[in-house]
Amino acid sequence: MAVNETLRVLRTLRYDARHFSLFLQAGTIGPQAQPGQFAMLQAGDGWRPYLRRAFSIADVTTWRGVPAIEFVVKVVGVGTETLGRVAEGTPVPVLGPLGVPFPIGDLGPGDRVALVAGGIGLAPLVLLARHLSEKGIQADLFYGGRNESEILKRADFERLLGPHHCRYASDDGSLGRHGLVTELFEGALAGGTRFRRVYACGPVPMFRALAGILEEAKIDGSFAFESAMACGFGVCLGCVAPTADGRFATICREGPCLPPSAIDWSRL
């Protein structure tokens, strides 16, 4: 059940000029949050930004013993800039948890899954890695970014999944494979690794390539989509994506986690 509540900022952790983690009090949202779900955050109390912003719930953790929700944020505009300047202790209106989570209930010991992240698409995969690790399910991370400094939270992933199950790709070759994360993933498939399901979050070109790979290899997928949203709970109808059955699905309510086969990629 989604809650509209005000949560205080516990900490802002900066990675570089464009990326930070925001830790808020967990409130009643944190304990309910499932991997792949998101929350709508109000940045500042002015009229620029006017609307709340949607962020994946990256992790449910603690900060100095206080239950916390973590959001990993890339600064792309006025909303994320404003959120990055919010001081410790500031109350932030938060609506969540929202949306359909990644399907993991059907997995059991012995299953092996892959996590594919592109850029800031790591965000929902941290909590997913935590839940999979707690369930004893083996997961391999394939994570690509522009360069080493934009491939975030590696220590968390490596602790949860094991360092040998985390592989990286970078556009400039500064970390891992010099190239695309989808090439890295294809390499693992070519090497004979079999995955029950692939969980992914990243930019549309990565999704498009990965959807093709999964279809070819007949592997089940669940993609966490991103879209501009006004409301986050299915009423503004602003965040839609075209579906394979010829309609538009709300990313906020029917998603954000959808199987790639549900999407009409030719119209996206």
Partner: peptide
């Protein structure tokens, strides 16, 4: 009715 293809919304100063 299916409505319009996206993008359907954008934020503006003090509105959308």
């Amino acid at each position: 009715c299916h409505g319009n293809p996206p993008p359907r919304i954008c934020e503006t100063d003090a509105g959308m």
